[in-house]
């Protein structure tokens, strides 16, 4: 597995798409925070209110789309470049190959979440002062990390779609946008329905004070993650090249 991960890392050298997605993931919160800073006055929200407001743009919407884009690219590129055949005849077991891709994707997603956390903390420190930041740091960090990780696991069905679509790019991107849309709309779903759908469960379970059935929400997220992972591996193992 170490060799496979090293090979995946080598593949990302000079890769413009990964660089673009990473840059966007960093630039977007920086620009929003910079706007808040240059407006001069202290924001009208509390520090956590400001974090949630920022998250509604970045973590609810932009990051899942960028993450889906990266995952799609990692898988689909092997089909379009015909490298999948060289990989499989290297030989690499199909499960390992897919798991390797998912690890790289998860690493990217977590790294971006941590970068986002750092940017948010820096912005909060400038806007609200270090004392307020220290007081709320645990709450901010746990919200951002929990949100990032739960979003990551609910996006695993994208891997399944990416395997099935082979050379196409759009079906998995469409799924990403649909999942993101559901997640966003989930804030307005009734309590039970919102908890039943994995993508809407993520904001409901993460944002404090939301109406949620915690057991149902956690179960639906776990089932979604397991289902996505299982179907991606199963489909890839049984796919003719």
């Amino acid at each position: 597995m170490n060799n496979l991960l090293a090979a995946e890392r080598l593949k990302l050298r000079h890769n413009r798409l990964i660089i673009s997605c990473s840059s966007l993931a960093i630039i977007l919160p920086v620009m929003v925070i910079a706007t808040d800073i240059f407006q001069g006055a202290l924001p009208k929200y509390s520090i956590m209110g400001w974090v949630f407001r920022l998250a509604s743009l970045c973590q609810y919407f932009a990051y899942p789309v960028l993450s889906g884009f990266v995952l799609t690219f990692l898988i689909q590129r092997e089909y379009t470049d015909h490298t999948i055949i060289n990989m499989l005849t290297a030989p690499v077991t199909r499960t390992r190959l897919l798991i390797g891709k998912l690890i790289i994707w998860a690493t990217w997603h977590i790294t971006m979440t941590l970068c986002y956390l750092a940017i948010v903390c820096l912005g909060a420190g400038i806007l609200y002062g270090s004392a307020t930041l220290y007081g709320s740091f645990y709450e901010i960090a746990s919200f951002i990390i929990k949100f990032g990780l739960l979003h990551l696991v609910t996006l695993t069905p994208i891997a399944w779609v990416a395997v099935l679509q082979r050379k196409n790019f759009y079906p998995s991107l469409l799924c990403t946008i649909i999942f993101t849309g559901i997640g966003f709309a989930g804030l307005y779903f009734p309590k039970f329905l919102g908890s039943l759908v994995p993508w809407s469960s993520v904001p409901l379970i993460t944002v404090p004070g939301m109406q949620v059935v915690p057991v149902l929400a956690t179960t639906s997220i776990c089932i979604c993650a397991f289902f996505g992972l299982f179907m991606a591996v199963y489909s890839f193992k049984h796919q003719d090249q």
Partner: peptide, 25 residues
Amino acid sequence: SIIETPGFYPHLTGTENLQIFARIR
């Protein structure tokens, strides 16, 4: 083996491509 068109990563050099497959092996 070579099956159909040889598939390599277009943005990498020949050496880099082979290094990837060498690493996998």
